[in-house]
Amino acid sequence: MEAVRKAVEFQVIGRVQGVGYRYFAQTHALMLGVKGWVKNLPDGTVVGHAVGTPDQLVSFFHKLLEGPSFSRVDDLREKPLNEQMVYRYGDFSIVR
Rank of each mutant, 00 (worst) to 15 (best):
S59V: 00
S93L: 08
K35T: 03
E9V: 01
I13Y: 06
F10P: 00
P42C: 03
R77L: 13
D55T: 09
G33D: 06
S69N: 06
Y89G: 05
R5I: 00
N82L: 03
T53M: 00
K35G: 00
D55L: 11
D75P: 00
K79V: 14
A50L: 10
K6G: 00
V4L: 11
F70A: 14
P54R: 06
A3N: 09
R15W: 05
G36T: 05
N40V: 08
V16G: 01
L81M: 11
K6L: 15
Q56P: 08
L81Y: 02
Y21V: 07
S69K: 14
G90F: 01
V19A: 07
V12E: 08
I94C: 08
A25I: 02
E2P: 11
G20C: 08
G48K: 07
P42F: 06
G36F: 03
Q26S: 09
L76G: 10
V58D: 15
V86N: 02
S59W: 05
V73L: 10
L81Q: 04
L76P: 07
R96H: 13
T53D: 00
L41T: 14
P68H: 10
E9T: 01
V38R: 07
G33Y: 07
Q56H: 04
R96D: 09
V16R: 10
K39R: 15
W37Q: 04
L30M: 10
R5W: 01
I13H: 11
D91L: 00
V51G: 03
R22C: 03
Q17I: 08
P54W: 08
H28N: 14
F92H: 05
Q11D: 04
S69Q: 13
I13E: 11
V12A: 12
T45A: 12
V58S: 12
R77A: 10
D43H: 11
V19S: 10
L30K: 14
V34Q: 07
F70M: 13
Y23E: 12
K79C: 10
R96A: 08
L32D: 11
R15E: 07
P80M: 04
L30D: 09
R88W: 05
V38F: 05
S71Q: 12
Y23C: 01
Q11Y: 05
E9C: 01
N40Y: 06
K35E: 03
R72N: 08
D74S: 13
A25M: 05
V95H: 08
N82S: 12
V51Q: 06
S93K: 05
E2L: 06
G36P: 15
E66S: 11
H62G: 07
H49A: 14
V12K: 02
L30Y: 04
E78D: 04
P68G: 12
E9A: 14
H62K: 13
E9F: 09
S93V: 14
P80T: 04
E83A: 13
V86L: 02
V86G: 02
G48S: 12
T45M: 10
V86W: 03
I13L: 08
R96Q: 10
A29Y: 09
D75R: 15
T53N: 02
E83Y: 02
V12T: 11
T27H: 10
G48N: 11
A29M: 10
V51K: 07
